[in-house]
C-alpha cells in the first residue's frame, strides 16, 4: 500500500460512453487526503459511474485516473484496492453467508494482514461504526440500516487512503442520518484518508462535506464549498427547475 500523506487522487478529463449514451464527459476532479468531497447531482447524472471508473469496475472511454504519480486507469478492481482505494456500493453487497466479523476481517486480510492482526483491525473498524455487538451475526440476517454500516466498516478495515461512499444514507431516517454524520465527520482527520461521498441527503451532504462537485448529465456544472454550491443558479436549476432560489438545507 502506498503510504504517502501528500498523495492526491486525480481524475483527469474522464469520458465514459455506454451504447448510445455518454454517461460522463470530461469530468476532472481531485481528492486530497484528509478532506471530504461531496459528489452530487440529479439521478442519472453519472455519480456512480464515476466511482465505478475510479475503482476499476468500469474502464473509461477517455481520460486518466492517477494516485500521486501512479496511473491506475484501466487496472482491475483488486489491484486498485491494493493501491489503497476502498468503496461501498449503492446496492448493498455484503458477504451474506459470512458473519459480520468475517465480512470486515476479510478486507483486512486482503490488505495483507495475518488473521490475528486482521481480527484486531476488524474489531477496530466495527467499533468505529458502532457495530461491535453485531460481530457474530451472519451478515444475511442484518436489518437494512445496519447493513450500510457494515459496508463502511469493511471499507475502513483495509485502511484506505481514499474512501468512496456510494449513497451511505439511502433509506436512513433523519436520526440515523445524524448518527452517520457523527460517524463519518472525524474519519478523514483520524485516519488520514480522503473521502468522496455520493448522496441525495442534502442535510447530510451540506454539513459533512468540505467541498462539493456537482454533475448533471455527465458534466461538471459546479464546484465549490457547500455554501457556494447552494446558491449556484445552474445547480438550483438542475435540481429544482429554474423557479426556485435555493437548495433545501
Amino acid at each position: 500500500m502506498i503510504q504517502n500523506n501528500a498523495l492526491t487522487l486525480h481524475v483527469e478529463e474522464i469520458t465514459k460512453d455506454f451504447v448510445g449514451l455518454r454517461a460522463l464527459e470530461d469530468v476532472t476532479l481531485s481528492l486530497h487526503r484528509g478532506e471530504i468531497l461531496g459528489l452530487i447531482g440529479p439521478n442519472g447524472s453519472g455519480k456512480t459511474t464515476l466511482i465505478n471508473v475510479i475503482t476499476g469496475f468500469l474502464k473509461p472511454t477517455r481520460g486518466r485516473v492517477r494516485v500521486g504519480d501512479t496511473d491506475i486507469t484501466g487496472w482491475p478492481p483488486h489491484r486498485i484496492a491494493h493501491v489503497g482505494l476502498a468503496r461501498t456500493f449503492q446496492t448493498i453487497k455484503l458477504f451474506r453467508g459470512l458473519t459480520v466479523l468475517e465480512n470486515v476481517e476479510v478486507a483486512a486480510v486482503s490488505a495483507g494482514l495475518s488473521r490475528p492482526q486482521a481480527r484486531e483491525r476488524a474489531l477496530w473498524a466495527l467499533e468505529r461504526v458502532g457495530a461491535t455487538h453485531l460481530a457474530t451475526i451472519p451478515a444475511g440476517a442484518l436489518p437494512y440500516g445496519e447493513e450500510r454500516r457494515i459496508e463502511v466498516a469493511r471499507a475502513l478495515a483495509s485502511r484506505p487512503i481514499f474512501l468512496f461512499l456510494d449513497e451511505p444514507a439511502a433509506g436512513l431516517n433523519e436520526q440515523e442520518s445524524d448518527t452517520l454524520l457523527e460517524m463519518l465527520t472525524p474519519l478523514p482527520r483520524e485516519t488520514g484518508c480522503g473521502m468522496l461521498i455520493v448522496d441525495h441527503d442534502m442535510r447530510l451532504i451540506m454539513r459533512l462535506c468540505h467541498r462539493l462537485h456537482v454533475l448533471n448529465y455527465g458534466r461538471t456544472i459546479c464546484e465549490g464549498t457547500p455554501n457556494e454550491v447552494r446558491h449556484d443558479k445552474e445547480v438550483i436549476a438542475a435540481y429544482l427547475g429554474s423557479g426556485r432560489r435555493m437548495l433545501p438545507c
Binding site: A81, F95, R96, A107, S110
Partner: peptide, 25 residues
C-alpha cells in the same frame, strides 16, 4: 479458515465486493 480460504468464501458470496477489497478472484 486460512486467509485464502476466507477470501475464497467471500468471493463465493459476492464477486464485485470481493474484488473491491482487493481479492484476486
Amino acid at each position: 479458515e486460512t486467509r485464502l480460504g476466507l477470501q475464497l468464501r467471500a468471493s463465493r458470496e459476492d464477486e464485485a465486493a470481493a474484488a473491491s477489497i482487493g481479492i484476486n478472484i
